[in-house]
Structure formats: C-alpha cells, structure tokens
C-alpha cells in the first residue's frame, strides 16, 4: 500500500486541491493537521483524506512522524512525504515511485537541482541552500544536492528505521542522518517546486541549527 502523508498547518487555501490531486497517484492520503486555526482539517476530510488532528501545534517533523506511525499501522509498504501548500507537482510521483522500486533503494529524496526548472528565490538558491548543504554535511554526513526538500518516498524498511524526533524543521536534516546511520540506500530524483511563498528564512535556519545542536544532548 502506497500512502501519502501530508503535514498541514493552516493550509485551507491549498489542501483540498492537494488531496484531490494526490488520490489518483496513491492508495491512501493521510493529512496530519497540526492544530490549524483555519478549516484545513475539514477541507482535507471533504477531499477524502484520512485526517489526524494534533490537539497542540507540534511542528512539521512531529506531523510527519505521526503520519509514519499511522501509515505503519495501516500496513503501508511505501510512504510519500508531500507538502500541503501545493508547491509540488503530482506528476512527479509516479516516475519517482517507479525509480525507487527499479533501483531497489530504500529512500528517494526529491531535488530541485536535478534538471527541473523550479522558480527558486535568488537568496535561497545562492545563500541559504549552500549554507544548508554545509550544515547537512556536518550533522547528517550526507551529500544531498537539495537540502530541505519535502518530497520523499520511503519504503517500509526505511519507515521502521526513520523515527523522527525533531519536531520542527530540523527533521529535514535528521531524516538523511538516520538514513546514513542505518545504512539505508537512497537516491535523489528531480522534482518541480513552485514557490507560493518564501518559506524558511534566515531565522528558521538558525532555529534548525539550534535544534540539531541541542539534539546531541538529549537522550
């Protein structure tokens, strides 16, 4: 069973379309509503998703892990991480899923830098991403072209190993770090990203580094 996990926080504007478009490409869509103040949960349910609602806002990493737990419970063989803000293109799913299966790897990371022409803001492309890549190499010891891309496919083996404890955005570094730790096989695959908003800024980046640093001291 191929399950899409969509973490969503105040995504009322996009969530209905995202879920509707996802349906033909996966067996099931799980939307983890991270205590949105708008009607994200209602719209996701209307669109036919299985909705899990956090009673308190816990962050994107926490939402993904909630999705993982539920997907394992439902008997998922593969899961897809897909952002709820409509920045990804559903036509990337099937080629990516096929590539993952054919190459026999455990994890597929989406990348904005492998051919597809995403409209990445200038500051992100030339300042934030290079710093992010450096941080990834430092904390995760993984060389990924695209550091924080929310498009991923994990098989069941990876799902059992990748337990996200980084509740915030630092999960995007923690996932490759866990992939490396458990010696899971991975590939990168080009995906299209359409920016509706800037996303992570400098402040977000500083928080990620802080979270990764603090993680070293938490049992």
């Amino acid at each position: 069973m191929f399950i899409a996990i969509v973490p969503a926080f105040n995504e009322a504007k996009h969530i209905f379309n995202v879920v509707t478009r996802l349906h033909p490409h996966v067996d099931r869509v799980i939307v983890v509503d991270d205590c949105s103040t708008d009607n994200t949960a209602f719209l996701a349910k209307e669109a036919g998703a299985f909705v899990i609602s956090h009673g308190v806002n816990r962050g994107q990493g926490a939402s993904l892990q909630t999705g993982h737990v539920c997907a394992l419970d439902l008997g998922a063989t593969h899961v897809l991480h897909f952002d709820g803000d409509g920045q990804f293109d559903v036509s990337d799913i099937l080629p990516a899923y096929t590539k993952l299966k054919e190459s026999g790897v455990d994890v597929l990371f989406g990348s904005r830098f492998l051919g597809k022409d995403s409209n990445i803001p200038f500051l992100k492309r030339y300042l934030f991403f290079p710093i992010g890549r450096l941080i990834n190499r430092l904390f995760a010891r993984v060389r990924l072209r695209d550091v924080h891309n929310g498009f991923r496919i994990l098989n069941r083996k990876a799902l059992l190993h990748v337990v996200i404890t980084q509740d915030g955005m630092a999960h995007a570094t923690q996932i490759p770090a866990l992939v490396q730790r458990y010696k899971l096989q991975y590939i990168e695959h080009p995906v299209l990203v359409t920016y509706h908003e800037f996303g992570q800024g400098l402040r977000g980046g500083v928080t990620i580094v802080r979270d990764l640093f603090m993680d070293r001291f938490i049992r």
Binding site: G55, Q65, R219
Partner: peptide, 20 residues
C-alpha cells in the same frame, strides 16, 4: 524543556491517532 517538548509530542500523537 526540549525533552518535555518531545514527551508532549508523543502524547499529542497518541491522542490524535486514537481520536482518528
């Protein structure tokens, strides 16, 4: 505080899945 935060997440997750 970070540890407590993670414990809170575990609780919230369990409650959310049970409710769903």
């Amino acid at each position: 505080i970070e540890q407590v935060g993670r414990d809170v997440t575990t609780l919230i997750r369990k409650m959310a899945i049970d409710d769903a």
